[in-house]
Every structure is written in structure tokens, then in C-alpha cells.
């Protein structure tokens, strides 16, 4: 691991000025009273256990809720009974959109949902968007910019807001779900959480357990890329995908 960057030379003086503006002369030693800061790893684990149990118990209505909020947020929602059906839905969407250049990430979900075979059967050959040994930073970016559809899995999906949490890592490039104008996200039932609160509680625990090796980056994708910057007219698809599909297994 790279060494921790140094403290900025102006930090101490800056904090001193802030402190004196607040009418204090001494730094605060004890953490201010803030409930969600104080909960330690053990208590957080307990909290998350309750959240997971509730979400398991309410899985079916939560999936329905996700499908509803997603449709309201301009997702094209499809529900698949099993992995095979999910793969053929992906192929069907790709075919209907006339896709030529499809990129996908390399996640576990694709071991269960074999989209490659399904896509090839409709004449689309998917490429995995990963740097590997032969691909430079620029080459990966060019490949992402050239693609006309991206397919990735998610880490979590939040029913309250139809937000898909995508955490980039080995095999999951940031640009896979951003650069192509069309996007398909595959969601497995156990990835779905009811609320934003659930998600951030789980995320906090994950970070605590990762002991400093947690990811520094994730995104919520909650609908198509949109703007209303010209004459307040809603327009879909600016920098990100304008056509977004959500395939829910279950």
C-alpha cells in the first residue's frame, strides 16, 4: 500500500481559526454526541443483522416495490423466473435495440446467468470490459466509449428509490455502466434492500469489516441520464445511458 499522504501545512492554522470563530480555545477531545457515529462494529453488526432479517422476511413485497419505483423512475423493468429466462431477456433487449458493440463486466452473477451464449445466439458477441495485460487506460476508455450497450450486475438495489449500487472493482470497470448509451443491470433477489437507511447501515458495516481495504468508490444508478437544462425540457441520455433496463431475477 502507498504511504498515507502528509498533512497539509495550513491545516493546524486553519482549524485554529475555525475553533476560535466558534469561541473555543481548546480542541474537542471526545467525539460529539451523534448516534450513528458512536455505534461500534459489534453494535453495527447487530443492527445489520436485524436489517437483513427484515429484508429476508419481506423479500417478495420488496421486489414488487422495487419494480414499481423503478418503472416510475423510467427504468424498463423485466422480471425473470430463473437465470435462463434472465439471459434470454438480455439477448432479446440487445437484439431489439440493434446492438453491435456490447460490453459487460466480469461479476459472479454472469456465472449464474449465462448471457454470453444467449447473446451469441442472436448474433451479438459480448466483450468483457477489463484492463488486463494488453489494454492500457486509454484503450479501455475507447472500448467503453465505442460500445452501444453495457451489461453489469449490481452490489445492492434499493427499493425505496430504485437505486442500483454499483461498486467498481476487479472485473467491474466504472465506465461499463456509464459510457454506453444503453444499459442493462441484472439484479438478484438477495441484493435488494428496502430503504436508503438499510443500504448505508450495511455499507458502514462493510467498511468497518474491510479494515482499511474498503472501496473508495461507488455509484447509485437510479434511472436514465437526464437533463432539463435547455428550456426546462426533460431530455434523456446526456453523458450516461439514456436507455436503462433492469432485469430482476425473481
Amino acid at each position: 500500500m502507498a504511504p498515507t499522504p502528509e498533512e497539509h501545512p495550513n491545516k493546524a492554522a486553519f482549524l485554529l481559526r475555525v475553533r476560535s470563530a466558534l469561541g473555543r480555545t481548546e480542541p474537542i477531545v471526545h467525539m460529539p454526541d451523534h448516534p450513528s457515529l458512536k455505534s461500534n462494529a459489534m453494535r453495527q453488526q447487530e443492527k445489520v443483522r436485524t436489517i437483513v432479517a427484515r429484508n429476508e422476511a419481506r423479500r417478495s413485497p420488496t421486489l414488487d416495490r422495487l419494480a414499481r419505483t423503478a418503472a416510475a423512475a423510467s427504468w424498463n423493468v423485466r422480471r425473470a423466473g430463473d437465470a435462463e429466462e434472465a439471459a434470454s431477456i438480455v439477448a432479446e433487449i440487445a437484439q431489439q435495440s440493434g446492438v453491435k458493440n456490447l460490453v459487460r463486466s466480469a461479476e459472479d452473477v454472469f456465472k449464474r446467468v449465462n448471457i454470453d451464449t444467449a447473446l451469441r445466439s442472436v448474433g451479438v458477441s459480448p466483450a468483457i470490459l477489463a484492463s488486463g495485460r494488453s489494454r492500457s487506460r486509454g484503450a479501455l476508455r475507447d472500448m467503453a466509449f465505442r460500445a452501444d450497450m453495457g451489461v453489469t450486475g449490481v452490489s445492492y438495489a434499493i427499493a425505496e428509490t430504485a437505486s442500483c449500487a454499483v461498486i467498481p472493482r476487479k472485473g467491474v470497470a466504472r465506465l461499463a455502466s456509464l459510457a454506453p448509451p444503453r444499459l442493462i443491470l441484472l439484479i438478484e433477489p438477495e441484493q435488494v434492500l428496502e430503504t436508503l437507511d438499510d443500504f448505508f447501515a450495511v455499507t458502514r458495516l462493510n467498511r468497518m469489516q474491510a479494515r482499511g481495504r474498503a472501496t473508495n468508490y461507488f455509484n447509485f444508478i437510479s434511472g436514465p441520464s437526464r437533463t432539463a437544462d435547455i428550456e426546462q425540457t426533460l431530455t434523456i441520455g446526456v453523458h450516461g445511458p439514456g436507455e436503462v433496463h433492469m432485469v430482476i431475477l425473481g
Binding site: 484492463s131 428509490t161 467498481p168 476487479k170 465506465l175 461507488f218 447509485f220 441520464s225
Partner: peptide
């Protein structure tokens, strides 16, 4: 702000990419 339930994207970033990441800034 816009009367949306949530905006289309929320980005959460706290540092440079990890060495194993496929892409992303090397400096933060």
C-alpha cells in the same frame, strides 16, 4: 431541488482507485 425522489446518479468517492480497479483516477 427538482422534485425528484432521487437524482439519476449519486457518486460516492473517498480516495484514489485501488490498484486492482479497472479504471478511475490515480490521484484524489
Amino acid at each position: 431541488a427538482t422534485g425528484q425522489r432521487i437524482t439519476s446518479y449519486n457518486t460516492f468517492v473517498g480516495g484514489p482507485r485501488a490498484p486492482s480497479d479497472e479504471d478511475g483516477p490515480e490521484e484524489f
